[in-house]
């Protein structure tokens, strides 16, 4: 079985807030210096989900598709180091900083078709930059495949996929016929760290590089223009409660909250 995993390179979401800067004229997040980008966390978990499927049965091939304006070579190779078999890179300036999900859908759906024989697509539930949560759904719609979103467990067998979807108060077990698209959430559990053997093996794998021409995809105008990007305003003045010791501060906090009618 061939699995395609969609993985996006993003600015590290763990960037300390003090280093998170916005160029409001350019309406862009300033790439923090000395902080390398990462593979979107939910997408790493998508790689993990694919590897678990591969471990559970014979003859599974995992191709990872990464599309973007420019790549940090060691970063985008991480899924290979984790154990994926192929990396497809689609590098084009048309993926500029403005979100353009419909264009991403065109490109990724075309790449899945070009890979050929893909039966299962796994992606993260959303990317930690634009948090749009719509590209995997669009890919499923474009391919005419079903999609099960926000899963914490993915199994593929007997021509179908069985997933556990996270719901607000528990989970539901859902079946879909292959081919299908699945998105995963953090409830899946941590993605594995690449081991030394995986890292060495990944160094020897040459990524497959496809252009928009190879895929027969034209850039398209975004459906929405980004008109403003700024840091959120949070200007609450905190009243810090102090005491003789921590316990005393706790008692005084209760009194202060009572005084302010919070209790």
């Amino acid at each position: 079985m061939k699995i395609a995993v969609l993985a996006k390179q993003v600015i590290d979401p763990e960037t300390p807030l003090s280093a998170f800067k916005i160029d409001s004229d350019a309406k862009r997040v300033v790439t923090p210096p000395n902080l390398p980008p990462v593979i979107n966390g939910f997408d790493e978990q998508a790689v993990e989900a694919a590897l678990r499927v591969k471990e559970a049965q014979a003859d599974v091939f995992i191709a990872v598709i990464t599309a973007g304006a420019s790549f940090a070579p060691d970063v985008v190779k991480k899924p290979l180091a984790m154990g994926a078999d192929q990396l497809v890179l689609i590098e084009d300036p048309a993926f500029d900083a403005n979100p353009n999900p419909l264009f991403a859908v065109d490109v990724l759906a075309a790449a899945i078709r070009r890979l050929g024989g893909v039966e299962l697509v796994i992606a993260g539930r959303q990317a930690s930059d634009w948090d749009n949560a719509q590209v995997p759904v669009g890919v499923a719609e474009a391919l005419g495949w079903p999609i099960a979103t926000v899963c914490q467990r993915v199994e593929a067998r007997d021509g179908k996929v069985v997933v556990e979807r996270v719901t607000p108060d528990g989970h539901e077990v859902v079946e879909a016929p292959l081919p299908t698209v699945v998105t995963v959430s953090n409830e899946l559990g941590n993605a594995r760290y690449p081991n030394m053997r995986g890292i060495m093996a990944a160094k020897r794998v040459e990524p497959t590089r496809w252009s928009l021409d190879d895929l027969g995809v034209q850039p398209r105008e975004p459906a929405f223009e980004l008109t403003d990007l700024r840091l959120p305003e949070t200007a609450k003045l905190t009243e810090f409660i102090e005491g003789e010791d921590d316990a005393d501060a706790g008692r005084k906090l209760a009194a202060a909250m009572r005084e302010a009618n919070l209790l």
């Binding site: 960037t15 807030l17 997040v29 930690s128 634009w130 403003d228 700024r230 840091l231």
Partner: peptide, 9 residues
């Protein structure tokens, strides 16, 4: 956007 680190219009 950006995990709530920024607001976009």
């Amino acid at each position: 956007v950006y995990g709530g680190n920024a607001m976009a219009a």
